[in-house]
Nucleic acid binder design. Structure first.
Lengths: 219, 219
DNA sequence: CGTAAATTTGATACGTTTCAACCCTCGTGG
DNA sequence: CCACGAGGGTTGAAACGTATCAAATTTACG
């Protein structure tokens, strides 16, 4: 529906392509039509972290607004299509349409809330619980978009998952192995990136059980 | 300058008071005039984390935009004054003034970028480096506002610092002790929350030295 | 001044990283 | 067709860092 308000340019993206990179000039926002992208933030000393993974319906590029330059990099995990919208055109359209304005503000704010949730997980959960929580978030993202959640494909390496969760790839592998052993997930025959989640609430319960090993003293 | 565009209500806040809490209805944004606030996010299972600490000039409350309810709590660390602005009034004003619109967007986006930086630190640094990085961020926040950075007061307990950095209060205490021992910081006689940073770049170098213990083999 | 809260410090337990070996899949070229 | 190498994944053992628990000390405050 955004194309009714502002001119959009559709753009096909191949896997591994960067939509924009840290330091590049900011002029356009991108609305993801299909595909999955990872946002990578980079410190001046070389430290790197995947800040987020985003799906169709999500906006990309807000980070360039304050300075006119992007402060992170967006890379496609597989082929996808984005709709590019010039920031100034969008602002002009939003100024004339309160509902569009609210939509844009809500989109940015939702990213803020999401980042807070991620940071909460990274700051308070064990490595194993982080991996479980990540799978849960991934499945919920798919659910919001009406896709199946019992068989998911994470589209990324253990190393990329670790860079997101703040743990090493070996720890990711061990955590997944343990989750599989305990039966809350299982690996698909297609490959180790295809994961079956027979019961989402079992996975959710697993995260909770990791966080509350407390006063079970009184039964 | 915001009061030239929209009606603002000035509101005095006492230390420990919550400006809004998780779940409360969202109608107004707050521009901090003075004081320091912490943003606390809370998970359904009771896990808690200080998502951010914000100063005068920062906006508070964007998190309520998508759903109309706040998703985190804002608590004053000491007395302060905020300017309350109704969200709908601000949107009406922004629709008429492109520069104001851009300002608001830039403010939200800046929070996004800041949260990414924090998450990068928490995901990639050791406990000690996180504490050092935190002091550095705090000093820079003060510097942006024209305040002195050689004598800072963190206005919070070790426990609150730990809740922000994803580590225990004991680790915060040990990290600060080590920083003091190595001379990059020192404690003021006023109390353990008053910290002297004789040289910001020494502190900055300390963070870097923690992150690059690499190929120093060839001298 | 006395009590509660905050902070520091130590000893130990635990979890994650590190380093290494090994396995598997896949594409390439002999 | 199979040998080969590269990249991703798994697993083990040891080293390291942080959490945990406990105690001592300092600070805040009615």
């Amino acid at each position: 529906m955004i194309e009714r308000h502002v001119p959009v340019t559709k753009r096909l993206i191949r896997a591994q392509d960067a939509l924009y990179t840290c330091g590049s000039p900011f002029e356009t926002l991108h609305l993801i039509n299909s595909g999955i992208f990872k946002i990578v933030s980079l410190a001046s000393d070389g430290r790197e972290r995947s800040a987020d993974f985003v799906f169709d319906g999500d906006w990309l590029g807000f980070d360039g607004i304050p300075s006119g330059q992007h402060t992170c990099t967006a890379v496609a995990l597989d082929i996808g299509e984005v709709w590019a919208v010039r920031y100034d055109s969008l602002m002009q359209a939003a100024a004339k349409d309160p509902s569009l304005l609210h939509q844009v503000l809500a989109a940015i704010s939702a990213q803020l809330a999401r980042n807070r949730d991620i940071a909460l997980a990274i700051g308070t959960l064990s490595a194993e619980a982080r991996v479980a929580d990540f799978l849960l978030m991934w499945a919920r993202s798919l659910a919001e978009r009406g896709r199946r959640t019992d068989e998911i494909n994470v589209h990324m390496s253990r190393s990329e998952m670790g860079a997101f969760l703040g743990i090493r790839l070996e720890s990711v592998s061990r955590a997944l192995a343990k989750l599989a052993r305990s039966g809350v997930i299982s690996f698909n025959e297609r490959g180790r990136r295809d994961i079956s989640i027979p019961c989402l609430s079992a996975l959710s319960r697993f995260v909770r059980s990791e966080t509350e090993p407390e006063d079970r003293l009184l039964q």
